[in-house]
Nucleic acid binder design. Structure first.
Lengths: 336, 336
DNA sequence: CTGAAAGCGCTTACAG
DNA sequence: CTGAAAGCGCTTACAG
C-alpha cells in the first residue's frame, strides 16, 4: 500500500497542453495569462485534484506567510491550565491571522526557548513571531530583540524594552478598579498579584494613583502571588486571612482566577462578598460572569487584541516601523 | 535596509572546506561522516548562525513533520469562547506533538473547511490532521474519510464512522454520574445536553442504563441544549424552571459550563444546591473546582488524551493500522 | 500572452 | 567516509 505519486505542476502542464510557467501563472492569478488559458488550466487542475506544493513555493519565495505563535507555558502546569485568558487571546490572534491568510505555527512547550525560536526564523519556518504572555520571559524577549526576527509581544511596555508590545491599558484598568472600590466606600484595599510582572505593576500603579486622589485616608496593601494557579492563589488567600491584622474591605486581583480564589477564601472565613468585601478581577473570563457572586472585572477585547497584534507584526515583517499599542479597558460591573 | 543574504549550506560547505553533502550529513547526524568532520562542520555552522532551510528540506523529504490541528470553532462565538475544554485538549495535543518534534499548524476559523484542509494535505502542508471536537462536523469528517489524508478525531465512535476516534469513555462517564446521583437518593433526574452529538448521546445512555438498575422508580428527563454557550444554557435553565411541572432533584449536565448555568438558575429560583438538587458536570474545567459550590464532575485527562490522539495519528501517518481508543473517566466528587 | 532555461536550498543515490 | 551529479517542485527573469 504505497502513496500514489503526487501530481505535480509538470503533470498539469502536460495534461493541459501548456507549459509549466503558464500553469504557475494561471494558478497564482497572474494577469499574464489569457482568460481562456487560465480557465482551462484551472479546470484541469481541479479535475486532477492538484494543489501547488507549498514547500516548493516557500522555497522560491522569500515570504513563508507563516507566523509562529509562542504561548507562555509558564502559566501552565502539567495537567492543569491555570489561567485560560491566554487562550482567549490565542483565539483572537488565530482569527486575525486567518483573515490575512497566514499560516499559524504553534509552539509546543518543548519548543518554546530562544534557540528553537531563532532556528524557526533562520530556517525560514516563519516570517514573524507573536508572544502571548510576557510573564517572566523578559530574558527570552530581550535576546530575541537583538536578533533580526520581527516579533510582537502581548504584555506591557517597560522602559528598557527594545521591542513592541500590545497590551491592555493596564494603568487605566487599575484606575477603573480603584475608582470602583472607592465608590463603594472601600478604604482598606488589597492588591493581589505579582507586581514584578510589568503588566501587573501598571495595574497596581493605576490603583495607587486613583486612591491618591481620594480625600479620605485609604490604605493599599499588596499581596504578591508567585503562581498563576487557582490553588496557589487560594493558599495565599487563606494564609493572608489567617494572619492579617485588619481585613481588607476591597480587593483588586490581577486576574479573575485569583479573584475567585479570594472570594472563595473570604466566604469560607465568614465574610460576605460583596457585603463585607468588594472584589474586582481582571480579564473578564467567561466564567467571571457566572461565578457566584458574578465578578466585577476589567475587560479587554481579545479579538481587538488579536487584530492589533497581527497588524503591527505584519508591518514589522514588511520592514515598516510600528509602535506599541493599547487595547482599551472597560469596567464590567457585576455583583462583587 | 535589506535583508542580509541568508547563509546557505553551500556557504557552510565552502567555509568548512568540505562538500555540501558532507554538511548535510553532519547536520542530520548521519553516521556516514567522521566525528572530527562532523564537529568541525557543526562548529562552523554554529559560528555563522546557520540553520537548514526547512522548506527545502520538506521539499526533498516525503514527510513534512507537521500536523495540522483543527479546532471546532462551532463552539465559539465572536468575542466569546463558550467552552474552554477544547483548549485543555489543545494544550495536551501540543505537548504530545512537541515531544515527537512535530510542527503544529493551527487552523484559523476562516480556514477550517474541507476544501482548505484537503488543500493543506495535497500541498504537503501537513502529514496528518487532528480534529478537536466532533460537534456537528460529521459531514466534514465523513468527507475527509474518503480522502487519503490520515486524521484522527476527538469525539465519540458512531456506527457509521469510517474514521478513528479518541474520546473519553462517555458511556462510563454517564454511568458514574448516574450512580452518584442515585447514591444521593435522587430520583427525578434531568439530563442536559444536545444528545444528537454522539459524545453526549453516550453520556445520556450511560445515565439511563445506570438508572435502569435502580429498583425504585426513577425518571430521566432530557433537556436539549442547542448552543455551547453559558448564556444560552442559562436561558434554557430559566425557561425550563419556569415551566417544569416537577423540579428535578438531580442534574447531569454535558459540561461544567452548563452545570454552572443550571446551578445559577436553581439558586436564583430559590433552590439550594446541593440541598434540593445534586448536580454533576463534565470535563473538570479548572473553574469547576472553585465554583461556589464546587462542582462534582467527570474528569478526563487531557494530557493522556493528547498523547493517545498523537500516538494513533502517527501510526496512520506511517501507514499502520490503528483503532479508536478511550481515555478513562473519573468521577470527581465535590460539593454538588 | 507564452515557453525554455536557470535556480531556490536542500538530500539522495551513485561512485569512489 | 567523502564528493559530483541529479533532482525535489516550484517561480522568475528573459526572450519572443
Amino acid at each position: 500500500m504505497t502513496d500514489k505519486e503526487p501530481i505535480t505542476m509538470d503533470d498539469i502542464a502536460r495534461l493541459a497542453r501548456v507549459s509549466k510557467p503558464t500553469v504557475s501563472r494561471a494558478l497564482s492569478g497572474s494577469p499574464l495569462v489569457r482568460p481562456e488559458t487560465r480557465e482551462h488550466v484551472l479546470a484541469v487542475a481541479r479535475q486532477y485534484g492538484y494543489a501547488v506544493n507549498r514547500n516548493a513555493q516557500k522555497l522560491r519565495h522569500k515570504r513563508t506567510n507563516t507566523i509562529c505563535v509562542s504561548i507562555d507555558y509558564g502559566s501552565f502546569r502539567k495537567n492543569h491550565i491555570t489561567d485560560p485568558f491566554i487562550f482567549d487571546l490565542l483565539a483572537g490572534v488565530s482569527e486575525a491571522l486567518g483573515e490575512l491568510d497566514q499560516d499559524i505555527l504553534l509552539c509546543s512547550p518543548k519548543h518554546n526557548g530562544f534557540d528553537f525560536l531563532q532556528q524557526v526564523y533562520l530556517s525560514r519556518g516563519a516570517d514573524g513571531f507573536i508572544f502571548l504572555g510576557q510573564g517572566h520571559r523578559e530574558n527570552l524577549l530581550q535576546q530575541f530583540s537583538s536578533s533580526t526576527a520581527p516579533f510582537i509581544v502581548w504584555g506591557a511596555k517597560k522602559k528598557n524594552n527594545r521591542y513592541c508590545v500590545v497590551g491592555s491599558d493596564n494603568y487605566r484598568g487599575g484606575m477603573l478598579a480603584g475608582n470602583y472600590l472607592l465608590g463603594k466606600n472601600r478604604r482598606q484595599i488589597l492588591f493581589v498579584g505579582d507586581i514584578s510582572h510589568p503588566e501587573i505593576g501598571f495595574r497596581r500603579r493605576g490603583l495607587e494613583d486613583s486612591v491618591a486622589r481620594c480625600p479620605e485616608p485609604v490604605t493599599v496593601d499588596v499581596l504578591v502571588l508567585n503562581s498563576f494557579s487557582f490553588e496557589s492563589a487560594l493558599a495565599s488567600a487563606n494564609h493572608y486571612l489567617s494572619r492579617a491584622t485588619g481585613t481588607p474591605d476591597g480587593v483588586f486581583a490581577y486576574s479573575d482566577t485569583a479573584a475567585m480564589a479570594f472570594i472563595y477564601a473570604f466566604q469560607k472565613a465568614g465574610f460576605a462578598v460583596p457585603g463585607d468585601v468588594s472584589v474586582v478581577g481582571y480579564n473578564d473570563l467567561s466564567s467571571a460572569a457566572f461565578f457566584h457572586p458574578a465578578i466585577t472585572t476589567i475587560r479587554q477585547d481579545t479579538y481587538l487584541a488579536g487584530e492589533l497584534l497581527v497588524k503591527k507584526l505584519m508591518r514589522l515583517v514588511d520592514q515598516k516601523k510600528t509602535v506599541s499599542g493599547f487595547i482599551p479597558t472597560e469596567l464590567i460591573v457585576r455583583e462583587t
